[in-house]
């Protein structure tokens, strides 16, 4: 008879696993990905395939070369690639998109020690990298198929110009019939993903709601109701608030600090959109707040029960 195992407790475990969590995020992103392909056609599909493949292959090769334990099985590289693709428009050449994935995985994630160790959100850092390197994103967002009226300018650009007459209707905004990155336009699809993440308890509602709520309330105060609604639905706010401001690695570990994080994201997004020349601020706001994480955690520290 084999000897019984000696170990410390607990002797049972929940069914949670890192891989399952990543799979849940992928499932939650699928509605937005499908909507992107429906709205922007096959180029959107190639964009997704390119980014995901480049992300997975670069993580695989990095681990191989750096002699690290292979980690592609945890599916986090798929999430990064998919998120990056959804943050790009079909105007971005595929080689640039692939380069973005490699940047995200190798420099932003693996170089910092891999999953759980990176400081900045890889997909956002890559998006900003592409934006600064090639200006790819602002070069003009192709309009969805079957929508001719407002190709070229995104609703945020129109809002910034004060050109409200050409704005798409709120229903069009909600369904995604407007220019933009392939995964950010269809609010309906993003909300389905949000609901799925909540049901699966992958994220809690506070971060997305506080982030979006802050932008909405500030826009309401400064611009009135209609502007506030457009601000909420336009740009990458919903995508960023639901999927990127909730990234585990790059956001605080405590619930209280996460709320502060979300508030900061909302504030910075609004300030950039409203007062700066840039039309969009979601990526920058999340990136800034990523760097604030250690302080947020320190400021919100609370006394443990029975401690000091």
């Amino acid at each position: 008879m084999e000897k019984p195992i000696m170990s410390s407790g607990p002797h049972i475990h929940s069914h949670a696993s890192s891989r399952r969590i990543m799979l849940d995020v992928i499932i939650a992103l699928l509605p937005a990905a499908i909507a992107g392909v429906v709205l922007f056609g096959l180029p959107a599909l190639w964009l997704i395939v390119t980014c995901v493949a480049a992300a997975v292959i670069s993580e695989y090769l990095f681990n191989l070369i750096a002699k690290r334990k292979q980690s592609v099985g945890d599916l986090s590289a798929v999430v990064t690639g998919l998120l990056l693709a959804l943050n790009l428009s079909t105007a971005v050449p595929l080689w640039q998109a692939a380069l973005g994935s490699v940047f995200a995985i190798v420099l932003v994630k693996c170089a910092f020690g891999g999953i759980g160790h990176n400081i900045a959100n890889p997909a956002i850092a890559a998006r900003v990298f592409l934006l600064l390197s090639f200006g790819s994103l602002t070069a003009g967002f192709p309009a969805p198929r079957g929508v001719d009226a407002f190709s070229g300018a995104t609703p945020l650009a129109l809002l910034a110009e004060g050109n409200t007459g050409e704005l798409p209707s709120l229903l069009q905004m909600f369904l995604g019939q407007r220019g933009g990155a392939i995964g950010e336009t269809c609010i309906l699809a993003l909300l389905i993903g949000f609901a799925y993440l909540l049901i699966r308890k992958v994220i809690s509602w506070q971060t997305p709601v506080i982030f979006m709520g802050t932008v909405f309330v500030l826009s309401l105060v400064f611009g009135g109701f209609t502007v506030a609604v457009y601000e909420l639905l336009a740009g990458g706010l919903v995508l960023g608030a639901v999927f990127m401001a909730t990234d585990y690695s790059t956001t605080p570990i405590t619930a209280r600090a996460r709320m502060l994080f979300a508030l900061g994201c909302g504030l910075i997004t609004f300030v950039i959109r409203w007062f700066f020349t840039l039309p969009e601020g979601v990526s920058y706001s999340i990136l800034c707040m990523n760097l604030m994480v250690p302080w947020l955690e320190r400021w919100t520290r609370r006394k443990p029960l029975g401690g000091v």
Binding site: I5, H11, I12, H13, A16, S17, S18, I21, S71, D74, S76, G114, I115, G116, H117, Y248, S249, P252, I253, T254, A255, R258, R302, K303, P304, L305, G306, G307
Partner: peptide, 26 residues
Amino acid sequence: KDTEKTAASPCIHCGRCVSVCPLGLN
């Protein structure tokens, strides 16, 4: 079968351990 263990993988910083701790530790 009940004692089979899954190998540990890197911390993903999800915060579940923090939010579940009855005493509020990290």
